[in-house]
């Protein structure tokens, strides 16, 4: 009996100490990690979906609020001080977790490009959503009916064997375009 109690206490204490110290460390490194993600993941994605700007979209990024306490981080692309496009990160649930996509869109609501920033899809199947052959299909689309899989009458060909992943990208992008169109005045005011 004494042995059992000792085992119980020792393991509990070890687990508690481990949990507490890790949560402290996680809290301390949180901001630094967010900075690094912006630099190494978001910046290349933003640059790949926007082109022809002469400002710095990374420095001028702003949190845009849409009411109901919903807000999104947006990266503006300007030429001669005039806002002509912006990038924002959208996401939806894929097969293995969230799929995050950097969406570049111009002021007419036309997609300039998309880039997958984070996903946990199956390598060789769902992971192929980040290949250019899939992502380039979104370029220049703007009508919401077009941003759908071909089986639903849209213009996006799904990756065979990865319908769920393909659907997640389509859903995230079309939601993003809808948010953009609904809030275009709001966005113009912010930048």
């Amino acid at each position: 009996m004494r042995d059992i109690i000792k085992m119980f206490i020792v393991l509990t204490v070890i687990c508690c100490v481990s949990g507490v110290s890790l949560s402290i460390l996680k809290d301390k490194t949180k901001d630094k990690i967010a900075d690094q993600e912006i630099k190494f993941v978001k910046e290349p994605a933003v640059l790949s979906v926007l082109a022809g700007f002469d400002n710095d979209p990374m420095i001028e990024r702003k949190e845009v609020e849409f009411g109901n306490d919903v807000s999104k981080l947006m990266f503006p692309a300007k030429k001669d001080g005039e806002l002509f496009a912006l990038a924002m990160e959208v996401s939806d649930v894929g097969y293995g977790g969230d799929v995050n996509i950097m969406l570049g869109i111009d002021m007419e609501g036309q997609i300039r490009g998309i880039s997958i920033t984070k996903h946990k899809e199956t390598p060789g199947l769902g992971a192929r959503i980040s290949e250019a052959n899939f992502t380039k299909q979104f370029k220049s689309l703007s009508v919401s009916g077009d941003i759908a899989l071909t089986s639903k009458g849209g213009k996006i060909e799904a990756i065979s064997g990865a319908t769920i992943s393909s659907k997640a990208v389509v859903k995230a992008v079309s939601d993003g375009v809808a948010i953009f169109k609904d809030n275009i005045e709001n966005i113009k005011n912010v930048f």
Partner: peptide, 17 residues
């Protein structure tokens, strides 16, 4: 548990630096 704690710590530190 001890090993896993240090591994998570390394992972966080690598992400940060």
């Amino acid at each position: 548990v001890i090993i896993a704690t240090f591994v998570v710590a390394v992972e966080l530190l690598m992400q940060a630096y």
